[in-house]
Structures are given as structure tokens and as C-alpha cells.
């Protein structure tokens, strides 16, 4: 696989939210507005690239049986360092908007999932590109969800009013709205994939990244 494909697969073919169904917890909680989604996405991308590269570096030194606790420690250390550096050197506005997302990332299963499924088997550059692609894929999916939910709930986009006098539809802003909109997104994504397969004259098969193939349980 070329470097570009390594990067691109996270955005479309193996999008973490819409195909791999990874990181559902932040996806549902933080997609209530486009701005929140963008903040969470960018902070996750940053941590994902860093932790993927570090884990790829130490992948041969860590014994297989304790690799997962070691990865969690590495990710947590990385996130905490990012948090401290941001509090110290980032502009106040950026820190205020992104800072609250950082502690949530430690437990984001995209980060551990990519560490285990990809970075523990691939070189540093590929792992970094995988992290970047997955991070952008996560950001884009989250932003699309956030924009739809924010628009339906308040008639705004990025906190800017689009339709004056919109009757607030708070269901969309709360947890049920997240499930409903995500459901439509997944249905749409499947529809696209099925159409694409039909056009190519093939039968649609789900991507080979389902739970039974995830090697967290299998190795």
C-alpha cells in the first residue's frame, strides 16, 4: 500500500466513525455542534499521530503479553504532556476551546484501537500517516454529524445563525439526536457502498474489519 493510500483509507474506506464504528462515545457526546466536533477531532488527530509513532517505535521492545497496559500508559503520558504544553504555550483562546477535549482522548478507543491494530505492526512513517488519516476521517465524520445536529437543533452553523427565528429542536442537541442522526449517516454510508458494489457488478460485502477480525481478542 502506498503512503498516500495509508493516509487516505482512514478518511473514506475505513473511516473510524462510519465504517469501523470506533470511538462511538466521543462521537455521540461531542457532535452536538460543529465547533465542538472540530475541536475534538483536531485534538484527537494530534494525539493519534503522536501515540501511533511512539508505539511504533517501541513495538519490538514491549513483550506481547503486557503490550496493552504499556500502550495505555504511553498514550496517557502523551495526552498529559500535550495538555500541559497547551496550558503553558498555546494562545488562551485555543486552550480554552481545545483544552477540555484533551482529557477525554485518553479513553478514546480509536487511539488504542489504531495502536493495537496498526502501529504495533508497522513502521513509524506508516503509523504516523495512518494516525493522520484516521484523525482526519474522525474529524470530518464528527463535523458532518455536528453540523447537521447543530443546524436541526438551533438553526446555526459554527455558532453563526443561518436561519433567523429557528424554533429550537433540543432533541437533536441531546443524546437521542446523536443516535438518530448517526443512524441516518450509517444508513446513507451503506447505501453508497451497496450502490457502488452494484455498479461494479459485485455483491456488497461488509468491510473485513468486523469484530471477529480485530486482533485485540485474537492474538
Amino acid at each position: 500500500m502506498s503512503y498516500f493510500q495509508e493516509f487516505w483509507k482512514g478518511i473514506w474506506k475505513e473511516n473510524p466513525v462510519l465504517i469501523l464504528m470506533l470511538g462511538m462515545c466521543p462521537t455521540l457526546a461531542v457532535s452536538s455542534s460543529a465547533k465542538n466536533a472540530l475541536g475534538m477531532g483536531l485534538a484527537t488527530t494530534f494525539v493519534l499521530v503522536g501515540s501511533n509513532m511512539v508505539i511504533s517505535l517501541v513495538r519490538n521492545a514491549v513483550p506481547g503479553k503486557v503490550r496493552i497496559p504499556c500502550y495505555i500508559v504511553i498514550i496517557a503520558v502523551f495526552v498529559t504532556i500535550v495538555e500541559m504544553l497547551m496550558a503553558a504555550y498555546a494562545p488562551a483562546e485555543l486552550n480554552r476551546t481545545l483544552g477540555i477535549f484533551i482529557p477525554l482522548i485518553v479513553v478514546n478507543c480509536i487511539v488504542l484501537g489504531r495502536a493495537e491494530a496498526f502501529a504495533s505492526k508497522n513502521g513509524v512513517i506508516r503509523s504516523g500517516l495512518d494516525g493522520l488519516g484516521m484523525g482526519f476521517g474522525f474529524t470530518l465524520a464528527l463535523m458532518a454529524l455536528g453540523a447537521v445536529r447543530e443546524f436541526l437543533a438551533e438553526g446555526t452553523l459554527f455558532e453563526l445563525q443561518v436561519v433567523p427565528g429557528w424554533e429550537p429542536f433540543m432533541l437533536m442537541k441531546l443524546a437521542p439526536g446523536a443516535f438518530i442522526v448517526l443512524g441516518f449517516f450509517l444508513a446513507g454510508m451503506n447505501l453508497l457502498k451497496i450502490r457502488q458494489a452494484r455498479r461494479e457488478g459485485k455483491k456488497y460485502t461488509p468491510p473485513e474489519v468486523d469484530c471477529s477480525r480485530c486482533n485485540i481478542c485474537n492474538r
Partner: peptide
Amino acid sequence: HSETPGLGTKATDRKAQKSLW
């Protein structure tokens, strides 16, 4: 604060009211 963005932050954040247009 460290409240959850989008949920708890409704009680903590002051959001500008601006129109895209």
C-alpha cells in the same frame, strides 16, 4: 472547568450570538 463539551458546557460557556449572513 472540565465539563463535557456540548452537555455540561451549556451551563458554563458564553456563546456569541452572531448570524452567518
